[in-house]
Structures are given as structure tokens and as C-alpha cells.
Simulated scan of single mutants.
Amino acid sequence: MTKEEVLEKMEEEKESVKSKILYGQSSNSSANGCGWCFDVINHAIDLVEQLDEPKKVIIPQFVADRIEEAKEHYGSEIDPLKIVYWAGSHIIDSDSHYEWLENIHNQELLFNAIANGYEVEN
């Protein structure tokens, strides 16, 4: 679930609680509880908005091409490990491409690119 999806769900819940308070859909005894809940939801929304999003990594064009090919091959339900396997087994264009994938730092970049998104280096 993305940060935006969490915020959307929390806003929906906040509106639901707000309606209960404003339109008397709760008894007087539980109205105070709804008010407290409203404050808690607002505080939670503030905290979620402060969360850092994972930064997109920068990868070479040939790696981005392999990731996109893997997505086409495996369909919309993407298992990151399958994409890593696909990308690794299809990076045979040149020795330099193979060497790129042999580097442990680059393997981490590849996995991070699949998990959090990526930008292509210029």
C-alpha cells in the first residue's frame, strides 16, 4: 500500500467519523469517543504525511529495458525475484553488462529499482 493510499483511507475514515459527530449518528455518550477518534485520525494523518518515500535509484538503460521486458513476460502480478532472475539471465548483451550485474552493489540497485521504482541514467 502506498503512502497516498493510506492517506486516502484515513481521510475516508475521518469523514465517516465527522459525519457521525455532525449528524448525530452516535449517541451523546459515544459522541465524545468519536471526537477523540477524530483527533487521533488527524494526528495519524499528520504522521503519515511526514513519512519519507523511498528514493528511486538510477540505473543504466539496458537494465531498465530488462526490467520492462520481465514485466511484459510475467504480466501484471510481478514478483521482484522473478524480475531479478529474468534481468540477470537476459543481460548477455556484452561483457560490460554482465560485469555490471556481477557487482553486489548493482544487484542491490536492481532489486531496489524493482521494489521502489527507478530513473534511467543519462
Rank of each mutant, 00 (worst) to 15 (best):
D52P: 06
L7M: 09
L109M: 13
V6Q: 09
E119W: 02
E11S: 06
V63L: 15
E121V: 03
V84K: 06
A64S: 13
Q107K: 15
R66K: 15
S19Q: 06
S19A: 13
N103L: 03
I104V: 13
D52L: 13
H90S: 08
M10F: 10
E8S: 14
W36I: 10
N112F: 03
Y98Q: 11
D93E: 15
N28S: 10
Y118G: 05
M10H: 04
E8R: 14
K9D: 09
L81W: 08
Q50S: 10
C37I: 08
Q25H: 08
I114Y: 00
E72L: 08
E53A: 13
S16M: 12
E108H: 10
G88E: 08
K20H: 05
I58E: 13
Y85S: 09
L110Q: 10
A31Q: 09
I92D: 01
A64I: 02
W36D: 11
I91G: 02
K3N: 11
I104R: 09
A87W: 02
I21Q: 10
V57L: 05
E69T: 03
G117S: 07
N106A: 06
E69G: 01
W86Q: 00
A113Y: 07
G75D: 04
E8L: 11
C37Q: 09
G88Q: 09
E11P: 00
S76P: 01
A87D: 07
P60Y: 12
G24Y: 08
K14P: 00
I21G: 10
I78Y: 03
D95A: 13
